[in-house]
């Protein structure tokens, strides 16, 4: 993009008074605004199509005189399963997030603060899970879920994701940064492991727990491959499967399809605005697992 002119603009660090500075600042905003527009162009395109009514030949820009917002309500009537898909995604993402928080916090606690023989073995056991890509386990997992009769069920969508090496190491790393004196003082006061973890360590670890929660929720909400495999009937679809199946169904009208897509993007977009710091931290850490 504008790699070449940006460093020149660098020189304008200190805002100087004067007409020239105002002009240059104005120019910067034009450049920034233009690039920002390019970045979100696909989103604006989606919004534009959603607002054009049930036309089969939409244009790039809607007629701003008569924007048709009805598609956002209509899509719930035309595709009665849409609300169910949203509920499904929420249930799955919330339970997976809570499950990961519990299993990760417990395991991370043992690895970080308890002294026991063979700890290194367990350490490598958890580390090893990071080396195994999800794609290499998907076939046996699918066969297992099918044999258990868990297709089209919350168990099938949730249970395989209730623990993860990433969460364990993220929390372990954080627990290790907290002063060990804290633990010794608590033990002197007769505080057992369970109570120390629950009433001292976890409240202190809110940033790390928040990072893990936001990251897990986002990943879970956006999952596509697994629900595609274990969901047969339309009412068990998650949002991601729903909007892509919506696309291939015959009743598709562009405005409804784009309205549905925008609706299912809202929770994660809101999450980005509210928890940008956690999200970014989580994604950056999460990427390390490869």
């Amino acid at each position: 993009m504008s790699t070449s002119n940006a460093p020149t603009l660098h020189e304008l660090d200190a805002p100087q008074p004067g007409v020239g500075a105002v002009l240059r600042n104005g120019l910067l905003y034009v450049v920034l605004g233009f690039v920002a527009l390019l970045v979100v162009l696909p989103l604006l395109f989606a919004l534009s199509l959603a607002l054009q009514g049930p036309t089969l030949s939409p244009s790039l820009l809607p007629d701003f005189g008569k924007l048709d917002w009805s598609s956002f309500g209509q899509v719930f009537r035309e595709e009665p399963n849409l609300s169910r898909w949203i509920v499904n995604s929420f249930v799955v993402s919330v339970v997976v997030t809570l499950g990961q928080l519990v299993t990760s916090a417990l395991a991370a606690y043992a690895l970080a603060l308890m002294k026991f023989r063979g700890k290194i073995v367990f350490f490598f056991f958890f580390l090893g899970t990071l080396m195994i890509p999800w794609e290499s386990t998907i076939i046996p997992n699918y066969l297992t879920i099918t044999r258990l009769g868990w297709k089209d069920s919350y168990q099938g969508l949730i249970v395989p994701f209730l623990a993860g090496g990433f969460g364990i190491f993220l929390l372990r790393q954080y627990f290790l940064t907290l002063p060990y004196d804290l633990y010794e003082a608590a033990v002197l006061d007769g505080c057992g492991h369970g109570r120390f973890l629950w009433s001292i360590l976890l409240p202190l670890s809110r940033p790390a727990l928040g990072t893990l929660a936001v990251y897990t929720f986002l990943n879970s909400w956006n999952q596509y491959y697994w629900p595609l495999l274990v969901v047969d009937s339309p009412e068990w679809r998650t949002t991601q499967i729903g909007i892509t199946a919506f696309r291939s169904s015959e009743i598709t009208v562009y405005n409804l399809q784009m309205a549905a897509t925008i609706i299912v993007m809202l929770p994660t977009l809101i999450l980005l605005v509210l928890g940008q710091r956690q999200l970014v931290r989580g994604l950056t850490a999460g990427a390390l697992k490869g």
Partner: peptide, 15 residues
């Protein structure tokens, strides 16, 4: 500039 972090590959592909 960060916004696409929150957009799933599925919804991006549909658009």
């Amino acid at each position: 500039f960060t916004s696409s972090i929150a957009i799933s590959v599925a919804s991006a592909s549909v658009i």
